[in-house]
């Protein structure tokens, strides 16, 4: 995300001409890329949520179970 965003800012800052070029009347590269950055942010968080719900959480729950069970056997003992 950092790269996407600063890529966008740097492109805007150093290559004004290119960002102002229009693809079709009314749509410049700058506007298209800006909108894409916004959508990317949303898609990235969405992908993360999916990954976390499908992979991270089940594994985490397994570890939790083991860890808390171990705690119960040796009270006060951590990790």
């Amino acid at each position: 995300m950092l790269f996407v965003y600063f890529g966008f800012i740097l492109l805007t800052a150093f290559n004004k001409g290119a960002m102002g070029q229009t693809l079709v009347p009314g749509l410049s590269w700058g506007i298209l890329l800006g909108a894409i950055v916004i959508v990317t942010a949303f898609v990235l968080t969405g992908l993360y949520v999916r990954w976390a719900n499908n992979h991270y959480d089940p594994e985490l729950r397994a570890i939790q179970k083991r860890a808390f069970a171990a705690d119960a056997e040796s009270p006060g003992g951590h990790s």
Binding site: Y5, I9, I31, G34, I38
Partner: peptide, 9 residues
């Protein structure tokens, strides 16, 4: 748009 994008990222 630069501001909007900045506020979102």
């Amino acid at each position: 748009l630069i501001y909007s994008v900045g506020f979102l990222v």
